[in-house]
Nucleic acid binder design. Structure first.
Lengths: 225, 225
DNA sequence: CTATGTAGGATAGTTCTACTATCATAATTA
DNA sequence: TAATTATGATAGTAGAACTATCCTACATAG
């Protein structure tokens, strides 16, 4: 059985739906590739157009600017991750096992999910680590937030916070702990690979260490006292 | 008694030492102000020059580009914070009290330190929250790291990690926990003010909540079991 | 079979950003 | 007094970040 997952994206993120046309899908596919290669600062629509074999104006027909494209890509990633979290924790009763699954999904490099056709999730994960906080660390957060651009991230946070509360309903900071897990999964991997002395994983450089650290952190915090 | 604190900065961060001249100090002072006002993305040397009453070329004599200026400013902040941490935890034996001091210093809005003449640390803290991760989330991390641009951050991390290890020498992740405290002090404040549903502090919006959250998180993690 | 709409290629142009270069001058220091 | 340094004044360039216009191929609706 071949299943395809379609993620419904916020329509205000684009001018024309990139998932409906060939060029649109190329913009997503090669956009991810190019941002990964040269980083978001050096990335622009002219370079992307060259890579795809279209024109700059062609890309602008789909996205207002590169910042919107980055938000689109990260929103896609968080939606997809939430789907995986719900899928993988389905039918599991123990909130402990659920939380471990979540941490694992957050911190381990994913393999390309072939259920999604033109998105390579393993590269996407790398982009999320290095670029995703740039989506909201701007003077535009409030307006972008009003447009619900960060809803997928918030929804994922909610899902995780709910598992935390199921584990221990008395724990006072389920949401803040959820964002801590999400953000630290990314930051610890980034630090491990780029500024290793900021972590305790410089020897092995394995994501499994990040998983252990996060599990220890989370379960110490929410253990019933 | 009037004391002045001078922080020795990495010389590779600037072309001409901004702390030695009038114009240089203005670049720092008004640079901080302007980045705070319009955000790092919209900030540029032309606008800064206008604000100061000099020319664009004048600013470029001190800093290669705006990214270097941001690194300078954040390096300054972390150095100053490390100084405060060491000063405020001096003569305290209890690592527990030390850690609480650290968390408090990290998460509470500082008042302007008048020991530093032209730097307004209360504004600086706001910049750190919204802009500091942009210093290392680039394709240049490795080179910038080789130039020791992130040393002040790493040193602060070491100081905190040492306190953690003094509290519990068996705890396996002192450095990662230290970066978690530092980063989460910033992110939780940012989220609280801009994307409040990602935190548990949307009602009160007080930094004291962040302090409580971090204390709970840290001491749960390092408590001897 | 024609009219209409849509996707997208081709080209050009604008304003702003991120610099670099040169020259002149005032103040400082040797 | 000469040399150095700081900085002001001015100009110029390459690239980024768009916007606009025109044209054509193709699908589809009537």
């Amino acid at each position: 059985m071949e299943v395809q997952v379609q993620i419904k994206m916020n329509e205000k993120l684009f001018l024309r739906n990139p998932e409906e046309t060939d060029l649109g899908r190329k913009i997503i596919q090669y956009g991810i590739q190019l941002i990964h290669e040269i980083g978001f600062e050096l990335f622009n629509f002219k370079k992307l157009a060259e890579r795809i074999g279209t024109t700059e104006a062609g890309v602008y027909r789909y996205f207002e600017n590169k910042h919107r494209l980055l938000i689109f890509i990260t929103a896609y990633y968080w939606s997809w991750l939430q789907y995986r979290v719900i899928f993988e924790t389905n039918n599991i009763d123990s909130p402990e096992i659920k939380l471990k699954k979540v941490i694992s999904l957050l911190a381990k490099t994913v393999e390309d999910d072939h259920k999604t056709l033109y998105v390579d999730e393993s590269i996407l994960h790398q982009i999320i680590i290095a670029e995703s906080s740039k989506t909201y660390l701007t003077k535009n957060v409030n307006e972008d937030n009003k447009e619900l651009f960060f809803k997928p991230y918030k929804d994922l946070c909610s899902v995780i916070a709910n598992i935390i509360s199921t584990y221990n309903s008395k724990y006072k900071y389920p949401r803040s702990l959820a964002t801590t897990i999400i953000e630290m999964a990314q930051f610890q991997i980034f630090f491990m690979n780029n500024l290793p002395s900021l972590t305790d994983f410089s020897k092995t450089k394995s994501e499994l260490n990040v998983v252990s650290f996060l599990e220890d952190l989370v379960f110490s915090a929410i253990r019933k006292k």
